[in-house]
Design a protein around this nucleic acid. Structure first.
Length: 307
DNA sequence: ACGATTATTGCGTTCTT
DNA sequence: AAGAAAACAATAATCGT
């Protein structure tokens, strides 16, 4: 029996793991990790389907090659290590008789009771389910969902839960990860998905941020360009130019205090105009959930920047 | 001439600092 | 608390058909 150290990780050959290439959206780095292929800049996910294949483990001696279980995950309260008792077939795949079925059902029931050993664990399970629900409602990538779950764990470990609702902290965890990983979602996007008021989520996020010292960079309008561009069906060229305009405007310092999505909409509108692509102010504004006046205002400030 | 889009202005509200 | 920003509304101008 080889020791764990003698194992080496083996991945599929058809994917270049851990490599980067330029992003078609924003020119940033598209990085293929163990769980997905996504742009580190704009968050564009190109492929997060090969997650479930999981890593395989191979002994130095190829003879004894065997597959290990799924990778550990932060998304389940037991990190995915719990035993599942099936009900349909036995290990050989044969049908089970009724009596055995009943016995298995009983075992399953008992085990599921035993699985939630403590109140703490129940809370964790509840929180993680909530994190997952909100995260998938936002359409976050697998790696981001994973990080959100991890953040919730950290919050619980830091004793931030007592006195606050789990739902609030779960939503706050999702939002915190959105902020830290540059996702184009604001509090106004996350809070309505929570089962508690926005004020609660904000409160939970505040303690999360101060107690844990989250590395939260300021939101940049360029983060919203890809999503809005996709929603509006803009061409690649328009999207690229809009992203460029956005960063240009940030450098010029005309974006402080403004709604980033609204500004991104203005960038897209400007870019579309300059390339004679059809995009009305009304549509751009609607995508960013702002009014046409806002788009116009920012268009004007963009004009002063670009000269 | 007509509808759609864009501009302009003022004003009460909401948000940022 | 002061000031900026975004929303709302009314109205006019421009453009393509």
């Amino acid at each position: 029996m080889p020791t764990r150290d003698s194992y080496e990780r083996v991945f599929d050959e058809d994917v270049q793991w851990g490599t980067t290439k330029p992003c078609p959206e924003c020119g940033g780095d598209v990085r293929t990790t163990a769980v997905e292929t996504a742009c580190t800049d704009c968050g564009l996910v190109m492929d997060d389907q090969h997650v479930d294949r999981g890593p395989t483990w191979r002994a130095d001696d190829p003879e004894s090659a065997k597959r290990a279980g799924a990778p550990l995950t932060a998304t389940r309260h037991d990190r995915g290590l719990s035993t599942r008792i099936g009900s349909q077939r036995d290990a050989q795949g044969n049908e089970l008789e009724n009596e055995k079925r009943r016995r298995l059902a009983r075992m399953r029931r008992q085990q599921s009771r035993a699985r939630w050993q403590s109140k703490r664990e129940r809370n964790l399970g509840h929180g993680l389910t909530e994190v997952q629900r909100i995260a998938s409602a936002l359409g976050l990538a697998a790696s981001v969902r994973e990080q959100a779950c991890q953040l919730f764990r950290t919050a619980q470990d830091a004793g931030l839960l007592p006195g606050r609702s789990i739902e609030a902290m779960a939503a706050a965890s999702v939002f915190g990860v959105c902020r830290c990983t540059g996702q184009s979602w604001l509090m106004t996007d996350v809070a309505p998905l929570a089962r508690v008021s926005q004020a609660r989520v904000e409160g939970a996020y505040r303690v999360l941020n101060t107690e844990l010292g989250l590395p939260t960079p300021p939101v940049r309008p360029s983060q919203f360009v890809p999503r809005l561009a996709a929603e509006l069906g803009c061409t690649d060229a328009v999207r690229r130019q809009a992203a460029q305009l956005a960063t240009q405007a940030v450098d010029a310092g005309v974006t402080t205090g403004v709604h980033p999505a609204g500004f991104a909409a203005a960038c897209l509108y400007m870019a579309a105009c300059s390339q004679d692509e059809p995009l009305t102010q009304a549509d751009a504004a609607a995508a960013a959930e702002v009014t046409v006046e806002t788009v116009r205002k920012h268009r004007d400030s963009l004009l002063t920047v670009t000269g």
